[in-house]
Measured scan of single mutants.
Amino acid sequence: VPQRAWTVEQLRSEQLPKKDIIKFLQEHGSDSFLAEHKLLGNIKNVAKTANKDHLVTAYNHLFETKRFK
């Protein structure tokens, strides 16, 4: 089981690129989880459509539901 890579403050910070969060989610989330949160596909394309709040919610949801690969 992966550990949380970032704190809530870090997740919301401008310093953390959306692409980093997407990469983490794609590496650790199950396909059904990723599909549900519309996070499947090319990281660049996902970054265009997903806002930061959406990614933070998905990140927290992944750990709450433990839907890891």
Rank of each mutant, 00 (worst) to 15 (best):
V1T: 09
V1F: 13
V1S: 08
P2I: 08
P2W: 03
P2Y: 03
P2N: 04
P2F: 03
P2Q: 03
P2E: 04
P2H: 09
P2C: 14
P2A: 03
Q3P: 10
Q3M: 07
Q3L: 08
A5V: 14
A5Q: 15
A5I: 15
A5N: 15
A5C: 15
A5R: 15
A5G: 12
W6L: 09
W6V: 13
W6R: 09
W6C: 15
W6I: 12
W6G: 12
W6Y: 07
W6Q: 12
T7R: 02
T7C: 13
T7V: 04
T7H: 05
T7N: 07
T7A: 03
V8A: 12
V8S: 08
V8K: 05
V8E: 15
V8H: 08
V8Q: 14
V8F: 04
V8G: 06
E9P: 03
E9D: 07
E9K: 04
E9Y: 02
E9F: 02
Q10D: 15
Q10V: 05
Q10W: 04
L11N: 01
L11P: 01
L11G: 01
R12P: 04
R12L: 15
R12I: 12
R12W: 15
R12Q: 14
R12H: 14
R12G: 06
R12K: 13
R12S: 09
S13G: 04
S13I: 02
E14N: 14
E14R: 08
E14W: 06
E14G: 09
E14D: 13
Q15I: 06
Q15D: 10
Q15F: 08
Q15G: 11
L16W: 03
L16E: 01
P17C: 11
P17M: 08
P17A: 07
P17L: 09
P17H: 14
P17I: 06
P17F: 07
K18C: 15
K18D: 09
K18Q: 09
K18M: 14
K18G: 11
K18A: 15
K18F: 06
K18E: 14
K19V: 13
K19L: 09
K19N: 13
K19S: 15
K19G: 13
D20W: 04
D20P: 05
I21L: 05
I21S: 00
I21R: 01
I21G: 00
I22W: 03
I22F: 03
I22A: 04
I22V: 11
K23V: 07
K23N: 09
K23W: 05
K23E: 13
F24T: 02
F24V: 04
F24Q: 03
F24N: 01
F24H: 02
L25C: 01
L25E: 00
L25D: 00
Q26V: 06
Q26A: 04
Q26I: 06
Q26E: 02
E27T: 09
E27H: 10
E27G: 08
E27Q: 11
E27I: 07
E27V: 08
H28P: 00
H28D: 01
H28N: 14
H28V: 12
H28E: 05
G29T: 02
G29D: 00
G29N: 00
G29A: 10
G29I: 01
G29M: 01
G29H: 01
S30Y: 02
S30F: 02
S30G: 05
S30C: 11
S30K: 05
D31Q: 12
D31V: 12
D31H: 13
D31L: 12
D31G: 11
S32W: 08
S32K: 11
S32I: 09
S32G: 09
S32A: 11
S32P: 11
S32T: 09
F33M: 02
F33A: 00
F33I: 02
L34A: 02
L34M: 04
L34K: 06
L34H: 01
L34E: 00
L34Y: 00
L34T: 01
L34R: 03
L34C: 04
A35K: 11
A35M: 10
A35D: 08
A35W: 14
A35Y: 12
A35P: 01
A35F: 12
E36H: 09
E36T: 07
E36G: 08
E36C: 12
E36W: 12
H37G: 02
H37I: 04
H37M: 12
H37F: 14
H37D: 00
H37K: 07
L39H: 00
L39C: 02
L39I: 07
L39T: 01
L39F: 03
L39D: 01
L39N: 00
L40G: 09
L40P: 01
L40W: 09
L40Q: 10
L40F: 08
G41W: 03
G41A: 05
N42S: 10
N42W: 10
N42F: 10
N42R: 13
N42K: 11
N42A: 11
N42I: 10
I43D: 06
I43A: 09
I43T: 09
I43M: 09
I43N: 06
K44Q: 14
K44N: 15
N45M: 13
N45Y: 14
V46Y: 05
V46P: 03
V46A: 06
V46T: 05
V46K: 06
V46H: 05
V46M: 07
V46Q: 05
A47T: 14
A47W: 06
A47P: 02
A47H: 08
K48V: 12
K48Q: 14
K48L: 14
K48E: 15
T49M: 13
T49W: 14
T49A: 09
T49E: 11
T49R: 12
A50G: 05
A50T: 13
A50Y: 05
A50M: 10
N51H: 08
N51P: 07
N51T: 12
N51A: 09
N51C: 11
K52P: 03
K52A: 05
K52M: 06
K52N: 05
K52G: 03
D53A: 06
D53P: 05
D53R: 05
D53C: 09
D53T: 07
H54F: 07
L55M: 04
L55T: 02
L55P: 00
V56K: 03
V56T: 06
V56A: 09
V56L: 04
V56S: 05
V56M: 05
T57C: 14
T57L: 11
A58D: 02
A58K: 02
A58C: 09
A58T: 06
A58Q: 03
A58N: 02
Y59T: 02
Y59K: 01
Y59W: 03
N60K: 05
N60A: 08
N60W: 05
N60Q: 12
N60H: 07
N60S: 10
N60Y: 07
H61R: 10
L62K: 00
L62R: 00
L62P: 00
L62Y: 02
L62G: 00
L62I: 05
L62S: 00
L62N: 00
F63L: 03
F63R: 02
F63W: 06
F63I: 02
F63M: 03
F63S: 02
E64G: 05
E64I: 07
E64W: 08
E64P: 02
E64D: 12
T65Q: 12
T65W: 10
T65V: 06
K66C: 12
K66V: 05
K66Y: 11
K66Q: 13
K66N: 09
R67T: 10
R67L: 07
R67A: 11
F68G: 03
F68W: 06
F68N: 03
F68I: 04
F68V: 04
K69I: 07
K69Q: 07
K69T: 06
K69H: 07
